[in-house]
Nucleic acid binder design. Sequence first.
DNA 1: TGTACATCAGTGAACGCGCGTTCACTGATGTAC
DNA 2: TGTACATCAGTGAACGCGCGTTCACTGATGTAC
Lengths: 209, 209
Amino acid sequence: MQIFFERGEVMRRSRSATAETRERIVSTASGLFLKKGLEAVGMRDIMSAAGLTPGGFYRHFESKEELIAVANQAAFDHLMAMFEDRTKGKSPAEALETIIFLYLNQSQHEGNTYLCPLSMVGAELGHCGLKVREVAMEGRQRLVQFVADRLMHLGKSEALTTASGVVSTMAGAVMLSNMAPDQATASAILKDAQVLIKTHFAPKKPRKG
Amino acid sequence: MQIFFERGEVMRRSRSATAETRERIVSTASGLFLKKGLEAVGMRDIMSAAGLTPGGFYRHFESKEELIAVANQAAFDHLMAMFEDRTKGKSPAEALETIIFLYLNQSQHEGNTYLCPLSMVGAELGHCGLKVREVAMEGRQRLVQFVADRLMHLGKSEALTTASGVVSTMAGAVMLSNMAPDQATASAILKDAQVLIKTHFAPKKPRKG
DNA sequence: TGTACATCAGTGAACGCGCGTTCACTGATGTAC
DNA sequence: TGTACATCAGTGAACGCGCGTTCACTGATGTAC
């Protein structure tokens, strides 16, 4: 986003600190949104958690809605980078096992920063504007593709379809476990989802005709 | 909730209209909550949609939070009664097929009043108080049991575990499809979930030890 | 290199608004006798 | 059965509050010459 003059020169205006501030707002907001929900977190919460005052926000973003889009994009980037990192060099079967575990247990250890918007803010994303929903769907697609790639290496047919179903199962299970009033119920929901998902990972050839 | 005097007599005070009003508030609120989200719907929205003014609400309920609990309870009752009705006399396999279809397509036809809180208000329930979350978990358990009962009749082992996983898949898929920016994506998510779920319905005996 | 100026990130008070809830009041209902 | 009274469902204005956003301002930075 650069400003051009009539003569065509480019204004070099940004101090590096500006970009750092913007990033701090994004990552702070992302964490708060995922933990408490989009509507439950106010601009003052975000800005003061980022060590700023409310007015400064609008030097970086047009609106809360724009921030929601950017913060969720960042959350997906953060999550996927972690998945890539944690499965580097692993076999497809090991990689699948790993990310299923990491995804399902994302909200089981307090302070975890690798949370998925699909399960943490769930239905709230559906009430946002087009841009936010596009970001959510891109994030979902990246998850699906990640799983599908590894399923294909296991020789599974219909990898994309299965991966899509598995992502629905994971997102649903984490969302449901978050509303459990006790830890035992939460664990049971996650365990049952894990068992069901693993059924689809046993390496076998596609059925005949 | 009856009022006792010092002498122990019971005041019989309720006109039948009072109960009707309460029910109207509950069903109106339930519909609005499911369509627009818990936080997005205000007391004035609910009361005016029920043909009342805001103040009257507190003759029936202690708080918005209490209404959320009661309205979601009502939504589960409504949904489960419809499932029972639509599967009456059907074989276990047919019954499963029917409720999978009804659940997955709940938000595909406008104006449908059979919506599940688990997928429609998802993560928001997790940020509510204990009572609301207990209601959500009871609702989930009823769904799980409904599916498990029919799975058992198909001779499936681990019916409860499978049913729990299937409910996670269904709730996740509907939630995700609700945030799709276009109908094609929404349909694909639901279809993929349906395919994955049906894998678990093929009648077969438990694997040997 | 030094000086004058323009930019703009960040401040913090204020805006208008809608939220959940309260409250004094109304008037129809049910009870007491 | 008729009259006097108590109850309480429902009204609608008002309360205090926090929301997202705006705005005049400050002061450090970068640019022009």
